[in-house]
């Protein structure tokens, strides 16, 4: 695709801008910011990836992954500032998910140990883990706040902190992972996944594209479940002190 073709595709940005202006939706500013940001960010990533792929240096690959984890943490932590030490917990979760998935992929020789495979797959895994973290934290905080009386009841009857928030924890893990599982049930029927579509458009064999997409889907399933469970089990103890007393969530900063 040439830059001229890309310029022409801006017509797809003009359509929502015109509609927003006509109907007074007030989306013009955000649409423009989103467009400019996506062009700059993706082009920058494209050039960076070109350098990384050409050099094949392990240090560049690691730097890219660190950058992804840092950006994902920065984004997700805003949803969990009420939980003590959320930044550390998110970093630990993203690192674990990355090591687990890449460990299996590379360890079993499923994908080659090259930047071309490691970086895009890491991007998908960490990106998905970030979205899952946001979904989980949103739900968990609201569950903890709305069910504080039940929590106190269980503690007052001699329950442990884990028992006191068990229901809130399970509900939040389920609620955050269900969208990933549900979307897999209709995949291919309702929509063709982006990565697979991209490969097919780029001229790849559709069956090969499907095989790769399946790999990613299974990977994201693990990512979703591991992220929610790990973040949940890292987060709930901070709601209690050593005397098993329920602490109020920290105020939003």
């Amino acid at each position: 695709m040439s830059y001229l073709s890309l310029a022409i595709t801006l017509i797809f940005v003009i359509i929502p801008l015109v509609l927003s202006k006509t109907l007074n939706l007030g989306l013009e500013k955000d649409t423009l910011i989103a467009t400019v940001r996506s062009i700059i960010q993706l082009l920058a990533v494209g050039y960076v990836l070109q350098i990384v792929f050409e050099s094949e240096h392990l240090i560049y690959i690691l730097l890219m992954i660190i950058l992804m984890i840092a950006a994902a943490t920065q984004n997700a932590r805003k949803k969990g500032v009420q939980i003590k030490g959320i930044t550390r917990k998110l970093v630990l979760t993203f690192i674990t998910v990355e090591i687990l998935t890449q460990g299996i992929l590379l360890g079993l020789g499923i994908t080659p140990a090259t930047a071309q495979y490691i970086i895009p797959i890491s991007g998908m895994v960490i990106g998905n883990s970030m979205v899952l973290s946001i979904l989980f934290l949103n739900r968990f905080i609201s569950e903890v706040e709305s069910k504080s009386k039940e929590t106190e009841l269980i503690l007052s009857l001699g329950g442990t902190p884990k028992q006191a928030v068990h229901k809130q924890l399970i509900t939040s893990i389920q609620a955050s992972t269900i969208p990933t599982i549900e979307s897999q049930k209709t995949i291919g029927l309702v929509q063709l996944p982006g990565m697979m579509s991209g490969q097919i458009i780029a001229g790849a064999d559709p069956v090969q594209a499907v095989l790769f997409q399946l790999l990613i889907l299974f990977l994201l399933l693990t990512t979703a479940v591991v992220t929610s469970i790990m973040l949940g089990y890292l987060s709930y103890p901070t709601l209690f002190n050593e005397r098993m007393q329920f602490l109020k969530l920290e105020a939003k900063k």
């Binding site: 106190e152 007052s156 009857l157």
Partner: peptide, 19 residues
Amino acid sequence: PPVELRRMVGFALQDATMI
């Protein structure tokens, strides 16, 4: 220990919270 204390000192809450 907190669990032992809470079993020994029973507490019926004002609004009779139920699960």
